[in-house]
């Protein structure tokens, strides 16, 4: 086997560099300041998040990645206002947020569509909650349903849709409120590989078409690199920012880039961060048990 010499993930083409310069010029939508989260359990306090500092700029696509249990779900729940931070601040457009609100749209991993409402009524839910008239809310909702390509299913109930379609409705429902940021908590975790990659392309298209900042949580390296401008890599126990990686893969993204040198270099770097070579003497290898069948040649 020949080893391919990869460039450094820090190397950026002029085009990519220009793009990042542009992003950094833009206004800050979301800012996390010294965010801490401590859970009190029977066995004592557990620090889930420690010292998280981060800024997301307008129309930026940020992915948060980390091994399971690193607190990435806790992080997004704090951003959504579903949980409160133990210390530190979350600023949206420079103003501190407390509690959930329509200015931060959320897409959950489980399908959280309201089963008793049709697709259209699901998308109208947020608009109606804020006092928009049924008529206006309906025409707004139909536009968003159109945007995610489900106009034929506006009057279907969620249970009649496939998993991928449900998540598209969930995205439309979250976007209909015109939030400042779209928070996505492993939204494609429950989908099969094929639907998943299709949904990733959809999401990039939607993101490209409208003015929205996205914070996307995942544990899938390829997904993170494919989607993100920057990737926030979280370390486990406690959840701390390990590194913020600027993805050197140019846009528009395409599944063909999965094997491009920049992509692979980034992938290798994140992989090292998330799965550091074990230094505690623990052997990752499983015991080899040879199952023999009659007639198999067993080496001595």
């Amino acid at each position: 086997m020949t080893r391919i010499e990869l460039p450094s993930y820090l190397e950026q083409s002029d085009e990519v560099k220009a793009r990042f310069d542009d992003i950094k010029q833009r206004e800050v939508i979301l800012e996390l300041k010294d965010l801490h989260k401590v859970f009190s359990t029977a066995k004592g306090d557990v620090t889930a998040l420690k010292n998280i500092n981060f800024k997301a700029h307008r129309r930026e696509f940020v992915c948060v990645i980390g091994a399971s249990g690193c607190g990435k779900s806790t992080l997004i729940r704090i951003l959504a206002g579903l949980e409160s931070a133990s210390a530190g601040e979350v600023l949206l457009d420079g103003k501190p947020v407390s509690g959930p609100g329509p200015d931060r749209g959320m897409v959950f991993q489980g399908y959280t569509l309201f089963p008793w409402l049709t697709v259209k009524k699901n998308v109208m839910f947020g608009l109606r909650s804020q006092g928009m008239s049924t008529f206006t809310a309906e025409s707004e909702a139909l536009q968003w349903i159109d945007l995610v390509g489900l106009d034929k299913f506006a009057d279907s109930y969620p249970d009649q849709l496939s998993g991928g379609m449900k998540q598209r409705v969930a995205i439309a429902r979250a976007l209909a409120n015109k939030p400042r940021i779209l928070l996505m908590d492993e939204p494609y975790g429950a989908l099969d590989a094929q639907t998943r990659s299709k949904m990733q392309s959809y999401l990039l298209q939607i993101w490209h078409n409208i003015d929205i900042t996205v914070l996307f949580i995942t544990h899938d390296l390829d997904e993170a690199i494919y989607l993100a401008d920057r990737i926030l890599v979280l370390k486990s126990h406690p959840g701390e920012v390990e590194e913020i990686i600027e993805v050197p893969v140019p846009r528009p993204r395409d599944p063909d880039q999965f094997i491009s040198p920049e992509f692979l270099a980034t992938r290798k770097r994140i992989d090292e961060l998330i799965h550091p070579p074990s230094d505690d003497g623990e052997d990752d290898k499983l015991n080899m048990i040879r199952l023999t069948r009659v007639g198999d040649e067993v080496e001595p």
Partner: peptide, 11 residues
Amino acid sequence: SLLEAALTLGA
């Protein structure tokens, strides 16, 4: 999570 979803939608 349905209640949480509703909260994030501004209910």
